[in-house]
Design a protein around this nucleic acid. Structure first.
Lengths: 244, 244
DNA sequence: ACGGTCTGTGTACGGCGTATCGAGACGCGT
DNA sequence: ACGCGTCTCGATACGCCGTACACAGACCGT
């Protein structure tokens, strides 16, 4: 394979060599969309840690640096990924009740985050001015519009829900990842695995209430219930405080 | 004597146990505490990205691998850092009203997160069974205890607030970091910097409500107000729904 | 005095992001 | 028809990173 690159180039190349040379190839093999698609696939399958420029290049059958023609670097890539999966969120147009709209997006966002755990570990989801994320925000703000709310309050309500959802989903994801890293595939296995730490910490006697929870709680593993309980509290509070 | 040996799983001495052990002698240059202290300093000053094992070693005047005697790796280090700064949170013992306790911790946690922006980018704060984090949880759970609440509901309420605080604080931090990265030192500079993106996105006409906010909002830059508004909504909702 | 244990050192490996430069293929003005 | 600028992609290389591993010296109880 060594001497492929002679200086007297074209003329000397045998037809055979010519024949199994890669391919004329469709001119543009890459595009931001393709790159984002592959990145999402890899991140879903193996975690965000597996998303490296080299890995994407390999997956795309392309040289390590090729992708840089289409995305400026890792940051661009994150934004593209976030925008891409945001398409999974949708609430039917018929639904107009503010509370139903916000609740539906919240529940869907949690599910999306569990499907794409890497979402929690990038900055973009919270800030990101991407088209699809903005569309999601717009839909929720529109549902809150026309209710006589001050525009600042409206945004505060929307953002409060977003913050809650992000924090709650993130904590679920982090727990799952921690379990996976340790090879714990069930809540019980996890408790067994954590037992040494717990024994030591609880042994200090400094956390009696927490201990009571650890020993007597009945819904410790019902994350969806916990999520929705908190969400409903928040929506209640918004409704009350904002006079909706 | 035999208990310390490598048999079975006794080999697993948790980092917390280690931390409680007295520094063996003067000859010991390193300890988990010292390492964590330096790590926090570096992270505060230059961001979590600057916290590398090699950097810490340099800062401690020690060989790159030395820290591994005291910390099993990056994960231990994150946990130690989180535990360390958690000491900054405190609510006087006299305060016993559940709402006051939760609110105070929430506000303090936001401030702490703004002081230590790297907090938002590690998994530990949400899950972490560290002594001091557990103490913070214990204090809040204790405040909710004895109110006739089901233990699961109690935990759900506590965790809802935690999730909100984490999400809200994180979004503030992310925005600040984004600004810093672009050299924008004021909200107005930021708006100017973002103007091109905004012009394009708003130009599509797909985000009318968002646009209204962008153009007419009065408290756009009052993050503390926004945070406390959402927090109070959530606490209202908890009080109402839980019959407190 | 001595063996075991613990602390810190030195070296090395495989990855990472990405700067830089060169080669080849397209498309437009002539 | 042709040539040249422009864009896409390839190859190489640099300087980081986390950390595995083998080792050396200091301390300890005996």
């Amino acid at each position: 394979m060594a001497t492929q690159k002679k200086d007297a180039n074209a003329a000397e190349v045998t037809i055979w060599e010519r024949m199994d040379r890669p391919a004329p190839a469709a001119r543009v093999a890459l595009s931001p969309q393709k790159i984002a698609a592959v990145a999402v696939e890899v991140a879903d399958a193996e975690g965000v840690g597996a998303v490296t420029m080299r890995r994407l290049a390999k997956e795309l059958g392309v040289a390590p640096m090729a992708a840089y023609r289409h995305v400026s670097g890792k940051d661009d890539l994150w934004a593209l990924m976030v925008d891409r999966v945001s398409a999974e969120l949708s609430v039917p147009d018929e639904v107009t009740d503010w509370r139903e709209v916000l609740r539906s997006f919240a529940v869907q966002t949690r599910e999306m985050t569990l499907r794409h755990p890497w979402l929690g570990s990038m900055p973009a989801p919270l800030f990101a001015l991407t088209p699809r994320r903005l569309a999601v925000a717009e839909r929720q703000l529109a549902a809150l519009d026309g209710l006589g709310l001050d525009v600042d309050v409206m945004m505060a309500a929307f953002r409060a829900v977003t913050a809650y959802v992000y924090g709650a989903a993130r904590s679920e994801v982090v727990l799952r990842q921690y379990m996976e890293e340790h090879g714990w595939w069930s809540p019980d296995e996890t408790r067994r695995g954590l037992a040494p730490q717990m024994r030591y910490l609880m042994g200090t006697g400094r956390y009696p209430t927490y201990r009571k929870y650890a020993e007597h709680a009945a819904r410790k593993d019902d994350a969806a219930w916990e999520f929705e309980t908190g969400l409903d509290c928040l929506l209640d509070g918004i409704a009350a405080r904002l006079g909706l």
